[in-house]
Simulated scan of single mutants.
Amino acid sequence: MRKVTFKEYFSILFGGLWQGILWVLGLFGYKDENPFGKVVKRIFASCVTVLMLLFTGCVLFAFAKQVVYNEFIRPHTNNRVWEEKYISNHIVFQEMYYSDKNRVFDKNEQKVLLEDVDWVVVSDDKDSLAVYARNGKRGYINRFTGKVAIPEIYTRAWIFSEGLAAVEKDGELLFIDHSGKVVIDKDFQVYFHDPKYAFKNGYCMIKNPVDGKMGLIDRAGNWVLNAEYDYLFNNEGFWQVEKDGYVGLYTSKMDLMFPVENSAIFVDDSIIEVRYTNHTAKRYDYNGNVVVDFVIDEVYNMQYETTELRNDMEPSDSEFVDNKIYGIANCQQYMVRGGTYNNSDYYGLLNRDGKTVTPPIYTSIKAIGKDLYLCQPDGVIVNDKGKIVH
């Protein structure tokens, strides 16, 4: 079989192309004998040839750049690191330039320990094992040596906390120890929306996979709070829960401290402040003893408009300030904050001795006389003894 030379190949190629052009142009009535037709055919053939050469060049350039260079040349000539995240003193997670896959690297030994790693996350409590992802699976590495401690066999995995880690395998939520042994297998399932699993003071929050309601399990996997709460979190060692808009508090030993019947609870600086649904508030110490029996957030003096007018004003001042005379009411207005962004503030009356005249049951109070006050939302008028007079 005779070999075809390079010149013969292109002669046949362009000959075939020329015959194709003649056939197409023949459909429009051009004849070889017509000089004008011959010129048009040659111009057309030249343009098509140039376009084909350009197209072929673009294809070859794209192939060389995306396949040949990226796959065969760049990995051997470009080994730069884009960003490093320390896993321990000398073990780092490196994100590489021009690569979707990254690596775990030993800076002391200048040695790659684990290739093609997507990400690595270290526990908040600096556990010895860090979770990593590779090839769509999750596993754990020893962050001090960089060696794989538990291979990537899990669909999803979370950081170790208090010696245990949550993993998902075959659709089940399990908890394992540092050896990879399953220590909690209670038919739990992962809640699809923003799942987070970590032990805190001996307990871990679990969500109902159907409705997302929250509960707590202990280290044996037993329920200590059933998954029935809308919100649940650890607050300075206490467990705060919310259900149907009401808030309660459990101690670190899961003893009920305040039932789920309050509008808000704040824990800070050795003080627990409870906002009740009757708009009052009290402060307690961490043992549940009352520290402040009646919390008031702010106190205001109130002015009322008298029937007298000022006569010492310049004419120009009256454009900006009225000439009415105001008096100071007998009672002060105090405010108790609602506690949360969707709860309104409420107001009550104090006498000059600091004693409460009315509870904080009004949305606003306005002095309309020395001893009379218009209180909303009902629009009642109260005197300085707290009695409704109209």
Rank of each mutant, 00 (worst) to 15 (best):
L349A: 03
D125S: 06
D384Y: 08
A157F: 02
G202F: 14
C331S: 13
V321S: 06
D211E: 13
A64C: 12
Y284L: 07
V112F: 01
F144V: 01
V24W: 10
D269M: 05
V117N: 06
K181Y: 05
F258S: 05
S179Y: 03
I365W: 06
G20D: 06
K137E: 10
V68Q: 10
D187S: 14
D218T: 09
I176G: 02
N351V: 01
D269L: 01
N102H: 14
N79K: 15
H279I: 01
D106F: 04
F144T: 06
C58I: 09
G16C: 05
E71D: 15
L22M: 08
S263T: 12
R2P: 05
L216F: 15
F238H: 08
L60Q: 11
M257V: 04
L129D: 01
Q303D: 09
E305H: 07
V380D: 00
W82Y: 09
Q110K: 07
T77Q: 14
D194W: 14
F188N: 09
T307D: 14
M1K: 04
V121P: 00
I217T: 14
F258N: 03
R74N: 15
E8T: 12
D125R: 01
W82S: 09
H90W: 10
N342H: 10
A62Q: 10
D211Q: 07
K65W: 13
V267E: 08
V183D: 13
A198R: 10
K7I: 01
K385G: 05
W223I: 04
D127W: 02
M257D: 01
